[in-house]
Design a protein around this nucleic acid. Structure first.
Length: 225
DNA sequence: TGCCAGGCCGGGT
DNA sequence: ACCCGGCATGGC
């Protein structure tokens, strides 16, 4: 049975690869931009995050040093389009405090940590939960960690591979146990999941045109949520 | 027009 | 150990 699941996961990945081609994620040019984006995109449409990052760039402030010394109120003003701007300004500050306290503001030093230890330390930062931590590790640090998000649970429970009641770490383990342990694969797969989710697997599903339609079980109860 | 987006935290049970 | 309200803008 687990063998079968592994085959299915790879087959779905190939189908998505055919549909989207290479996605080369994360959308962002530097490690730091990826981290900022990971925090700003929490429960937020990426188009809004782009505006916020554009504001930071326009101010020439997209660096750990600049954001670290910037007054929180000014930062909040710049990231206003990304929503939750007050709380996200605080979260960015929490990360920067951590980065400078532990690593002198140098990302390379941070990523020199053992992956497991770094994940724990990131999770201890206020405002960084499991998805944000794993996105930072995988996309900024190129560390082999599978990223789970709302779409992941929704898509694979609708396909009968998850119940939908699993917790974050259980879903993560499910993929890591059933996929070849390759950073590039984890990278592409999560990007594909987000893309397919945005287009076809919203709270109210649009399965008719979904490229993963052939993988739906015959009698699946596709419902909202 | 209302619903929704690539979560997370803190307080209550 | 769960469950829930709060946080906020912009696009369809």
């Amino acid at each position: 049975m687990p063998k079968n699941v592994a085959k299915t996961l790879i087959a779905m990945h190939r189908r998505l690869d055919k549909h989207f081609g290479p996605l080369h994620w994360w959308p962002g040019e530097t490690q730091f931009e990826i981290i900022v984006g990971a925090i700003l995109t929490q429960n937020t449409a990426w188009t809004n995050v782009e505006k916020a990052i554009a504001n930071i760039k326009a101010a020439g402030a997209l660096s750990p040093e600049a954001l670290h010394r910037m007054p929180p109120a000014r930062l909040a003003g710049m990231i206003r389009p990304s929503g939750y701007f007050n709380i996200k300004a605080k979260r960015l500050k929490s990360f920067l405090d951590f980065l400078f306290r532990e690593y002198g503001g140098i990302l390379d030093r941070m990523f020199r940590e053992r992956p497991g230890a770094l994940r724990e330390k990131l999770l201890a930062v206020n405002g960084i939960g499991p998805e944000t931590a794993d996105s930072i590790l995988l996309y900024a640090g190129r560390i082999m960690t599978f990223v789970v998000d709302a779409y992941t649970k929704r898509i694979f429970s609708r396909h009968g591979l998850l119940t939908g009641k699993e917790k974050y770490d259980e879903v993560k383990q499910f993929f890591e146990a059933n996929l070849p342990r390759k950073t590039q694969l984890y990278n592409e797969y999560h990007a594909q999941i987000v893309n397919i989710g945005k287009l076809f697997c919203r709270r109210v599903p649009r399965c008719a045109a979904c490229p993963l339609r052939p993988f739906l079980p015959k009698k699946s109860a596709i419902r909202a949520i």
